[in-house]
């Protein structure tokens, strides 16, 4: 139907397994150490009729050089809250309560938490890092904690608060690919080319 959003075609033509494979392939084969990749999917808001970017899919890899006993920046209370949320989400997905001392009770790192809360976010056209990239049809590449912190985009500052040093948003067909890393990764055209090839859904 013509009333459906452009993004619907991706869901039909490229199921979530395919999206996942592409996101995973993008950062598992990269020379850079990306912590996660997210596909923000463009759709039309039913009420306003405006374009909006919402969660399409994501792949969390984690920090490659993360020591086993990292002291998280999160306070004890915050850590307990994260574990409780994760436990509840786990129960919701599996349909059964997680057993005591399950893996779900392991420390929830800052970047894991940032990735999780990303699932609840959406961006109006032109707003936030993904919205800006889509609106201008130009990549946004923020490298360095200071640049993330100085950004007027809440998502960039939030990411910095969770230990990210680099956030990149690259427009693709029907959405935006976001890459994030706890390491400093300077802009390079290889990454942008790779995204364009991997997420050119028309080919």
């Amino acid at each position: 139907p013509t009333s459906s959003s452009a993004s619907t075609s991706i869901v039909n033509d490229f199921n979530q397994d395919t999206l996942q494979q592409r996101l995973q392939g993008l950062i598992d084969t990269a020379r850079e150490s990306w912590t996660y990749a997210i596909f923000w999917q463009s759709s039309i808001d039913d009420y306003s009729g405006h374009s909006v970017l919402g969660w399409g899919d994501g792949y969390y890899k984690g920090e490659v050089n993360k020591p086993k006993t990292t002291q998280s920046a999160a306070s004890l209370a915050e850590q307990q809250y994260r574990k409780r949320v994760l436990r509840e989400l786990n129960s919701m997905i599996s349909g059964t309560p997680a057993p005591e001392n399950d893996a779900v009770d392991e420390e929830v790192t800052d970047t894991e938490w940032f990735f999780l809360i990303s699932m609840t976010q959406s961006f109006a056209n032109g707003n936030g890092l993904p919205g800006q990239a889509a609106f201008n049809n130009q990549p946004v590449w923020l490298a360095g904690s200071d640049r993330l912190l100085a950004s007027h985009c809440e998502r960039a500052r939030q990411g910095q608060g969770f230990g990210l040093q680099t956030i990149v948003c690259i427009p693709s067909a029907d959405g935006v690919i976001e890459l994030g890393s706890t390491e400093l990764i300077l802009q390079n055209s290889d990454v942008m080319k790779k995204v364009r090839v991997s997420f050119d859904f028309n080919n």
Binding site: S7, T8, V11, Q16, Q20, Q41, S43, G54, W55, G56, D57, G58, Y60, G62, K68, L86, L89, N90, I93, A103, V104, E106, E112, F115, L116, M119, T120
Partner: peptide, 26 residues
């Protein structure tokens, strides 16, 4: 049902599964 909540649920399930694998192997 909208595709977005479905996508979130699938992503969440995958994230939790991979997390369990990471924790078990560490």
């Amino acid at each position: 049902q909208s595709a977005v909540p479905q996508a979130r649920k699938a992503s969440l399930a995958r994230f939790l599964e991979k997390r369990k694998e990471r924790v078990m192997s560490s």
